[in-house]
Design a protein around this nucleic acid. Sequence first.
DNA 1: CGGTATCCCATGCGATACTG
DNA 2: CAGTATCGCATGGGATACCG
Lengths: 142, 142
Amino acid sequence: MAVGVPDKARAEVGRRDVFDKDCPARTILDKVTSRWGVLILAALRDGPMRFHVLRDRIGGISEKMLSQNLRTFTEYGLLERTVEPTIPPRVSYELTPRGHEIADRLQGLLEWVQANAEEVVRFQQGTRPLDHDDGPRLPTTK
Amino acid sequence: MAVGVPDKARAEVGRRDVFDKDCPARTILDKVTSRWGVLILAALRDGPMRFHVLRDRIGGISEKMLSQNLRTFTEYGLLERTVEPTIPPRVSYELTPRGHEIADRLQGLLEWVQANAEEVVRFQQGTRPLDHDDGPRLPTTK
DNA sequence: CGGTATCCCATGCGATACTG
DNA sequence: CAGTATCGCATGGGATACCG
């Protein structure tokens, strides 16, 4: 049976709200906030970096994912790819002005998470995972 | 994925960096920057909201995803869940102070993406696409 | 009304292998 | 060095059905 095929024909982009499911900003947002996207863009705030440096900087990323994200962001105009015609070739990536704008906003998020991660985890572990009964510590006086 | 690192007491525990793959902040970051996480937290900046209102506000989200994210963030201490013992019950969610901090950072990102999405898309389309087609999804011939 | 449980598929991502 | 191609699995996420 045919799977529901959402028609790709978008008449016009009248939707400008990210909360609208047809808004093109959704696509951008998903890429930018993807698992590696945030880290890649944030890492490049320090300046231009070559492939391997970037790979080394971001722990756990595979070449495939790095390459894939890098290409996407380059196509989005958030990164600029520079190739030095040497042998072996040196390829470096750097944020475009537009890329910088978004990376700066990502940085704030990253810093917060970094600074508060332990607190959040501690809170989470102090909370009972799944219980229908309201916790005794939660005041029902409302 | 046990690559090794069986030592529970790492020598450099102080090196808690989001770029480190073992950093707990990675988990938090992934949840917060998940497809719906960003939108949910940002939406709640406007104030407490009930389940259906939130669902209506965020276009395209399923009840399952909304519920799942809401629970996770509540367990993280980013949201507070309030139940009014009426019939039928009214459940509302609101940002905790900690939730507000992160939501504010998310908001800046959202606003930027919203404001620049069209430019990014235009740039992307003006870029010579690589031979690999980036189609939405193609049902496998089966 | 506000969920939770189940099924199932689409996608993200990692591992490996190969190329210029 | 800097990728790309392929395979395969784990997980995110949608649709549906049911419960307090």
